[in-house]
Design a protein around this nucleic acid. Sequence first.
DNA 1: CGTGAATAGTTAAAGTGTTGAACTAATTTT
DNA 2: AAAATTAGTTCAACACTTTAACTATTCACG
Lengths: 149, 149
Amino acid sequence: MIQELINRYVTVSFQVHKKAESLIKCQLGNDLTNDQHYILRYMFNSGSCTSTELAEVFEVNKSAITAIISRMADRGLIERTRDENDRRVVYLTLTDEGKDLYQKAQERIHYLVESIITQFEEPEIKAFINTYEKLAQVLDNKKLEEREE
Amino acid sequence: MIQELINRYVTVSFQVHKKAESLIKCQLGNDLTNDQHYILRYMFNSGSCTSTELAEVFEVNKSAITAIISRMADRGLIERTRDENDRRVVYLTLTDEGKDLYQKAQERIHYLVESIITQFEEPEIKAFINTYEKLAQVLDNKKLEEREE
DNA sequence: CGTGAATAGTTAAAGTGTTGAACTAATTTT
DNA sequence: AAAATTAGTTCAACACTTTAACTATTCACG
């Protein structure tokens, strides 16, 4: 019983994940990679942040962040400013160009998601999103468990 | 109203996908990358396939498939055999080693998913998976629409 | 039948994303 | 003040991706 649920979950989550990824990639076109869009997304909502913070949130090595931020800074999407109090720290902020690009991308993604969501009944999609949000919470706790080990 | 649902959906799906990705990566360890695991997964279920088929399913360029299959063949996970009737075609099959590795990986992922699923009530998770499966269907149609454009 | 078009797959160059290790520079600890 | 920690970068190496050019084979049709 539980085994069947696990099988169905594994199958469908891999499928949806992959397809969603390539639909988003398609929406972003040549403007942004999926990873850069995700970074832009985080920074747009968090205001200003540091490399270490990004590395923790995205669970990648700090040098991966240095690399991706450098590419985005070269394109004028992000600015680096050194903290005057603690000169080890570098604050990352979006430029106006970065914000614009994010908002354009976000519009296209919302359009995509709308075209998907409207194919469901409202109660169904609400229940789905509720469970999805609980799932996000469970995955977060999972991450903490691992760190404690 | 719908705007709020879209926002919640976008936010939560990005979060869950990223976290699931890194949890799976963690389970796979140094044995397999997520992409290689996904290829193994497809091949395990489909028996034998071709590069062109993989390129279509995963929506990537054929040369990306050549590259990843070459790496996996070098490791002895996959074998290439040329079709004797149509000598342009190369059939890809899993070696015993490839099957073993997939099954080991799959056990670990099932264990992970079980530990997540059991934190939900059965009716809730069933309803969730049902909608998830419909969603997979909708995304597939989306892909077809795009092709027709 | 033969030539040109289409198909299956590979190779090569270039770019993105990732890790681990070694490093610089600044701050904290003791 | 010396040792340890922290923030971030650089480098080498590898995985994945795309585009374009290529080989080899098969198909289509005049």
